[in-house]
Structures are given as structure tokens and as C-alpha cells.
């Protein structure tokens, strides 16, 4: 599958915002993996959930310290 141009643009913009320059020799592999991640994430993102089902699996318990 060809990499959509906007994903390449996203990679370039996001790496600037995140402050993580991607060296040219790593770029093709990173782009391919980002494409794969996009496809995998789509399965989660398209799953319909209501506002009432907004609880995240990560839980924060105030009042306890190490």
C-alpha cells in the first residue's frame, strides 16, 4: 500500500512538535511503522463508545504516596 502523502507530512510536522528529529536513514522504517500503527489504531478508533463509557482503564488514586 502506498503511504498517503499526508502521513509523510504528519511525520515531519509531528517530529518537529515532539522535538524528535528522525534521521534520514531511519525515516522509511519509521514511516512504514507509523502507517502500520495507523491501520491498527483505526480498529480501536472506529469502535463506537458513548459518553457514558468514557472511563479509562488507567486509574489514579489520590492519597497514596510511595
Amino acid at each position: 500500500m502506498a503511504v498517503p502523502l499526508d502521513l509523510e507530512a504528519y511525520l515531519d510536522a509531528a517530529s518537529v512538535i515532539v522535538g524528535l528529529p528522525i534521521a534520514p536513514e531511519y525515516r522509511a522504517e519509521v514511516l512504514a511503522n507509523l502507517q502500520r500503527t495507523t491501520a491498527i489504531a483505526a480498529a480501536v478508533l472506529e469502535f463506537p463508545m458513548s459518553d457514558e463509557e468514557e472511563e479509562s482503564a488507567s486509574v489514579f488514586c489520590p492519597g497514596e504516596a510511595e
Binding site: 509531528a14 489504531a41 480501536v44 469502535f47 463509557e53 472511563e55 479509562s56 482503564a57
Partner: peptide, 14 residues
Amino acid sequence: ALVPAAWYIKAQRF
């Protein structure tokens, strides 16, 4: 490192 936060949060909700 470039994955959007909204994707991560939806994954945790799912």
C-alpha cells in the same frame, strides 16, 4: 513517539 494522545486515550477507554 508520534502517536496522537487521542488514539492512546481511546485505546485505554476501549
